[in-house]
């Protein structure tokens, strides 16, 4: 598969003397479903924000389809790459429809009104994320799961080629988290959407993603299919925590941490 989004010899730090990322190379293939995993402070969110262009590297570049991300205008970028933050907080009372419609901003000229095509895309995005029934509800009165689905619907309304999600299941319960991941896999398979997520839920990521990238201290320590990444030695190295890795009857990987008082 062709690489769609990649970093090339990236250096990043908030000052040049202590780099968080040094000569960092990472790429995601077209139509893939990747999860960036690792302990807190491993640099996942930094990589995520560099890939979206929200942070600028000290040196090196981020490339989208082989073109430097910097060469693309913000609008062009947003029409190809949608980003879902961990949470958004609206102080103003937007309805679900209004918020999803904001996904069309990058495709509309300043003087344009929503065309029939725009409205179709908004309806489609709301339908896929199952928020059509909530269209007139105020976004800031919804539950965490409904808000998450609404923000993803706004991202889908952008008609992106790549969808990046920052810990999409972190505020969701077991059932909602599972169903969201199922939906993302469906979008990846059926709509050929390239998806990358940051996740702390290794089991969920291992089950739904084709590729896992395990990071620690700004470096990739394991990268590949879930089977090759989810190994006790990798988990020990990344999290400094011994785990047993079990397979259930369906072949799903299960992680069992050490629950005793001493390591």
């Amino acid at each position: 598969m062709k690489t769609i989004l990649a970093t090339d010899k990236l250096d990043f730090g908030y000052n040049s003397t202590s780099l968080l990322l040094n000569n960092f190379n990472f790429g995601i293939a077209e139509e893939s479903f990747t999860a960036l995993i690792g302990p807190n402070g491993s640099g996942k969110t930094t990589v995520f924000n560099l890939l979206t262009g929200y942070l600028n590297p000290l040196s090196g570049s981020v490339e989208f389809h082989g073109k430097s991300l910097k060469q693309l205008s913000l609008r062009k970028r947003a029409s190809m790459m949608a980003v879902v933050p961990q949470s958004i907080n609206s102080a103003l009372p937007y309805t679900v429809y209004q918020l999803v419609a904001m996904g069309r901003i990058s495709r509309l000229s300043r003087f344009a009104i929503l065309s029939k095509d725009d409205k179709t895309q908004i309806e489609y995005a709301m339908d896929v994320m199952d928020v059509t029934a909530l269209r007139e509800q105020q976004f800031n009165c919804l539950s965490g799961g409904e808000q998450q689905r609404t923000v993803i619907a706004a991202a889908l309304a952008q008609e992106p080629k790549v969808l990046l999600l920052d810990e999409p299941t972190s505020s969701l319960d077991l059932g909602h988290g599972n169903s969201l991941m199922r939906l993302l896999r469906q979008l990846n398979r059926d709509k050929k959407l390239t998806i990358m997520i940051i996740s702390h839920d290794i089991q969920l990521a291992a089950h739904y993603c084709q590729r896992l990238t395990l990071m620690k201290d700004g470096k990739i320590i394991a990268d590949g299919t879930p089977d090759t990444v989810i190994k006790p030695e990798h988990i020990m190295e990344a999290y400094n925590e011994p785990v047993n890795i079990i397979r259930d009857d369906n072949g799903n990987l299960l992680l069992s941490p050490n629950f005793t008082d001493s390591k």
Partner: peptide, 9 residues
Amino acid sequence: EMAYNLGVS
């Protein structure tokens, strides 16, 4: 951040 993601500077 959300504005940036939506294509707004």
